[in-house]
Structures are given as C-alpha cells and as structure tokens.
C-alpha cells in the first residue's frame, strides 16, 4: 500500500478512518452511543472526556477488541470489517492500550513481536533476530533502554511504555491509537512521546490520542473530539476553540460556536432554561 500523502488535515480528501454511528452497550450501559469520529492522514485527533466517557471503548472497537452493536467503520473510504485484533492489524491499525497490554513474564522482544514472531526457515521463533530488531528500534525510541533480557515486569512504567510504543511503531502503522500514552510517564518521557507523535505525524500516520491533559492535547492535536456519557459532545479544530471552552465541553457537555456539535451536546433550550 502506498504511503498516504501528507495533507493538511480537515481539508477534504478521503478520511483515513471514519467511525459512524457506533453503538455498544454492556448490560444496559450505553458505553458508546451513536458516536462519530474521523481521522485524516498526518493528523492527530484528540479524544477527550471525563472518566467513563467511553473513549477507550470507542477506540477498542477500532482496534478489534470489541465488536460494536451497530455502526460502520470505513478505512480509506471503504467499509471495513474488524472483528478481532488480527483484523485491525491487517488494516495497519496499531494500538497502545491504556493498560499497556504487555505479557509481564516475557522480555521486551517477545512482547514487541507477540503474535507476529519472526521465525527461522524451520518455523522456530528467531529470538536473536527479534532481539536485534528490538535493539535497533529501541536505540531510536529510547536510547537509554538496556534491559533486553529481563521480563518486562522488571521495567519501569516509562520503559514499559516504550516497549508498547515500539510495538506500535515497528509494524508500519498507518493508524495509531494511543490511549493515555503518557499517564505513567515523567516529564522527560512525556516530552519524548510528544516528539515521537510529531515525527509520526510528519510521516503521514493518523493518530488518535486519548488524554486527560488538556495542555498536551492543545500542543499535539489538530482536532479534538469530546465525549460525555458515551455520546460525542462535539468536534473542533484545536485553533477554533479555547481551553476553557473545551473544559466546558468535557464537564458540562456545552458545545461552543467553534465546534461542530454531536448528539451529546447540551440542547440550546436546556442551556437557556
């Protein structure tokens, strides 16, 4: 597949990802309720909302962990069937989960290649090759990383994070989902993740970034979508809204004039009343 052209986000063209009218409920709880989000190549879209707003659930549908009750996912404008994490990977969707999703008892290389091991001509896993590749990518992402032979359980939060990020980056993702990638990180590591996001964006990836840090979101994201109680409050270009307005979207569900309202936006008359 040809590398997508880097285009100015939000200016027409085919979206890399469109998730339309997505619904999913868990035993009566509408975790995601008629949600719409889209993403263009070379664009970072922030997903915001209070705890339990449905952000993780929405992106887990895109990464194949959950199957939606209804709705449609389109990749490059074409309807996509994503029933499993494997399907998502075949569309070059890579995910860094909030919970990191690492097997603690395995080392960095085994985790990086989990489910996609490099094998020898006889079909045996090629640990040396995988370690070499891991060392290569880690020297770019986190040059201080040295613990290649120990279970990731023995790594710090930041080191684990870099393993999870390396896994997403290594396999030529076109669509990258980052669910609170900096939640466990120190200032320095957070900055490194920020730089990485900028770099990947320049390479033309589309990135969904879930974050509670509004400063980060304003620094890194081209657009943002706010969710509340499973519904989209609104979507806006970062330059069209202020931080206070976004906070209003998150807390009150109030959609400012610079944003396109969604089904979760507080009704005008309710506001007036």
């Amino acid at each position: 597949m040809a590398a997508p052209l880097v285009k100015k986000p939000g200016h027409g063209g085919t979206p890399l990802v469109e998730m339309e009218d997505i619904c999913i409920s868990f035993g009566g709880v509408h975790a995601v309720d008629h949600a719409y989000v889209d993403l263009y190549p070379g664009e970072v879209v922030g997903l915001l909302g209070h705890n339990g707003a449905g952000k993780s659930t929405l992106i887990k549908i895109l990464s194949g962990a959950y199957r939606p009750d209804s709705g449609e996912i389109r990749i490059d404008g074409k309807p996509a069937t994503i029933n499993s994490p494997r399907d998502a990977r075949s569309y070059n969707i890579e995910t860094i989960y909030q919970t990191l999703a690492l097997a603690d008892n395995l080392d960095a290389a085994s985790n990086l290649f989990l489910g996609r091991e490099l094998v020898t001509p006889f079909g045996f896993v090629n640990d040396d090759q995988m370690e070499a590749e891991t060392r290569k990518i880690m020297s770019k992402l986190n040059p201080n990383f040295k613990k290649f032979k120990v279970p990731v359980k023995a790594l710090s939060g930041g080191q684990r994070q870099s393993v999870a990020i390396a896994r997403a980056v290594y396999f030529n993702a076109r669509i990258l989902i980052m669910d609170e990638p900096t939640a466990a990180l120190g200032v320095h590591e957070t900055q490194m993740v920020g730089e990485l996001i900028q770099e990947l964006k320049r390479q033309g990836l589309g990135i969904f970034l879930i974050s509670h840090d509004i400063e980060d979101v304003f620094e890194l994201c081209d657009r943002l979508t706010v969710m509340k109680n499973g519904r989209v409050v609104g979507t806006a270009r970062t330059e069209d809204v202020t931080k206070d307005e976004v906070l209003g979207m998150i807390i009150l569900g109030k959609c400012p004039p610079g944003a396109k309202p969604g089904p979760g936006a507080m009704a005008e008359d309710a506001e007036a009343a």
Partner: peptide, 21 residues
Amino acid sequence: TRFGRYVFATGGNPDAAELSG
C-alpha cells in the same frame, strides 16, 4: 515455537495475548 510463546504469553497476561491476536 510460536505455540510455546503463546502459552507463556497467555499465562502472563491473557488480555494482552488476546489483544495481540
């Protein structure tokens, strides 16, 4: 073998194994 690797991965973190396909 991959099978063996998956046995240990699943034991270490079943969710991670599932999410890895």
